[in-house]
Design a protein around this nucleic acid. Structure first.
Lengths: 348, 348
DNA sequence: CTGAAAGCGCTTACAG
DNA sequence: CTGAAAGCGCTTACAG
């Protein structure tokens, strides 16, 4: 690989001039610039990222923290981030956040502290308080996408509103016995996405149970359909997890007439379980998911689309802006109910 | 962020000693080492990757070239590569190879030439001859996983054998009219994975048509079921693509009794199309895919599993070995027929 | 407009 | 076992 001195020598100028000619920074005569560029092309010279980084303090790379790279949602967001960063000259360093404690310590205490990136994009991952502090102490902008803490600047969908929309759709169809599949990390979980979705579900069910004219009123308990805590099954966010959780629900004394799954992949699992169990969708069971998964249309799945590709673009753009010192546009990320064949009025 | 001099000062030693204490290279008294380590921990010091890279010439980072990061296969391989690299202290720089020519030029002529990585892992992407030359000229080890050129060192599945296994399975069940969904880049494509799969399919069909005692013999044309070129529909590797291609086949005068799809996602699309078209699987149509997709079991899809996670691990391990100067173990990657409910004897 | 020099923060022979 | 010094390959004030 040619170095800047090779180019300088061959072009009959100083390294300083080569740097200026190629970077476009500083004044330089058009003639000199052209000559230098020509020589650089000839030699296939490109400035070493390492040396340039050390000199400027900027790495031109952003780190992306992902926990479940293989899941459709994350893979999709990741792809759109990469596509957005590259044209701006930024590289993408992928940090896979595993469940292994030793690996995580290595990541947060060492890898991330090596100064290899100018900023960090944290895709919805579960982070401990210590890890969040570690991120904040890095000295580079950190932007989350649906991250689990209010202490992290983040782009977010209003997850409670998502759950409200899902429940409202099912209730409008006439469903009262609605179950939720997802996760809840407990009262301390804060901004964790699955937790928010579950809380939104609980709140929406409570609102509905109270009714428009008797919110939380004494007659609530008199409605057998809505009595007790709403149905909820905790599961990991995979198709297989959705299937298992649904089978569990089907075995209940009073199975739900509708299931609100916290992701489309979970919802697919529910649909597989239904078929396996001899339940027709939507005749015997309505199903709604969240995401906007590419396979949703083929499954005929009603869902709350959160436009993952656009989320990735928004996140990348916001990071680029932060790196330029532009503050974050705090507008919540959009979502939209997409009605397909998997939801219908209950059989009665 | 503390620098090496901060640590040196505080520990009362030279920067040289700090470097040695922390890197473990060179002789140093246990006592000094401990003191330095203690101070480094206290200050939260971690050597700058940039400065260390410039000094050593090693970046401790490997670049991964992917074209369809969002597809299940690639996302899965990527995740397992990341999980394998991190414990070894290597970062992963993700290069998304888009279809946009300008982006690709930027990538191959500039980004990749900045010397940010010690080696490159090219996941099955379509590359032009120029791009392959560009990779070879980088001065770092390049390892492909199913890459489209014999000029690139690569880990590969024997794709022809995969197709032979698929066809053999279908023929053993009694199918004669078998269609293939996939891709073929034409005679110049060389080692391109979809092309190899298609060629393997054509070869397997020809072998079978010839029969054990009359391979390519004159009586071939007399068998109406196998006359003419075997059915083939070109499509992109998505579920939607599989569906469209299948619908096209169903509309043919003589639709196939079995479809061999070049990926599981394509096969899912075929199954959706079959249902839509009123065809029962496997009664009216047998379907077999390739990959070992996590949803395969739920779809009841027969497939040729190629163990993507293990492929990622093998690729990462091989790259790590190459970086240590260990030559590549050229053993082909394993695959395995997994029979599920989507294949059965034709109705007849 | 152009160049000499310092500096970015490490590592590594080379001495001692 | 420890340290002073050079060097990795750039960029950027500072002069001219």
């Amino acid at each position: 690989m040619a170095s800047i001195d090779d180019v300088a020598r061959r072009a009959g100028v100083s390294a300083t001039t080569v740097s200026r000619a190629l970077s476009g920074r500083g004044r330089i005569s058009e003639k000199t610039r052209e000559r230098v560029r020509h020589v650089a092309d000839e030699l296939g010279y490109v400035a070493s990222a390492t040396a340039a980084s050390l000199a400027t303090g900027r790495t031109m790379s952003v780190g992306v923290l992902v926990s479940l790279t293989g899941r459709w949602y994350f893979a999709t967001v990741l792809e759109s981030i990469a596509a957005r960063l590259a044209p701006q000259g930024y590289d993408l360093t992928l940090y896979d956040v595993t469940g292994d404690p030793a690996q995580r310590r290595l990541l947060f205490e060492t890898s991330l502290r090596r100064g290899r990136v100018d900023g960090i994009l944290a895709l919805t991952v579960t982070l401990t308080d210590d890890e969040i502090e570690a991120l904040r102490g890095l000295g580079v902008p950190v932007l989350g996408l649906g991250t689990p803490s209010p202490r992290l600047l983040a782009l977010r969908v209003d997850e409670r509103a998502v759950s409200h929309a899902a429940v409202a759709h099912l209730r409008a169809l006439g469903h009262r016995r609605i179950a939720h599949l997802g996760n809840d990390k407990g009262p301390d979980a804060g901004f964790d996405v699955p937790t928010q979705r579950h809380r939104g579900f609980v709140a929406a069910m409570a609102d509905a149970a109270g009714g428009p004219d008797a919110a939380g009123g004494p007659d609530t308990a008199a409605r057998p359909d809505t009595a007790g805590a709403p149905l909820f099954v905790q599961t990991d966010f995979t198709v297989a997890g959705g299937r298992r959780a649904a089978l569990e629900l089907f075995a209940a004394l009073e199975p739900p007439t509708a299931i609100y799954a916290a992701s489309d992949e979970l919802a697919f699992g529910v649909m597989f379980a239904a078929r396996e169990h001899g339940l027709r969708v939507p005749d015997d069971l309505s199903v709604i998911g969240v995401d906007g998964h590419e396979m949703g249309a083929m499954f005929g799945l009603t869902t709350i689309d959160q436009f993952p590709r656009r989320q990735g673009e928004r996140a990348a753009d916001a990071m680029l802006a932060l790196l330029d010192g532009v503050p974050l546009d705090p507008a919540p990320l959009p979502f939209e109910l997409v009605v397909r064949g998997s939801t219908a009025p209950p059989a009665r």
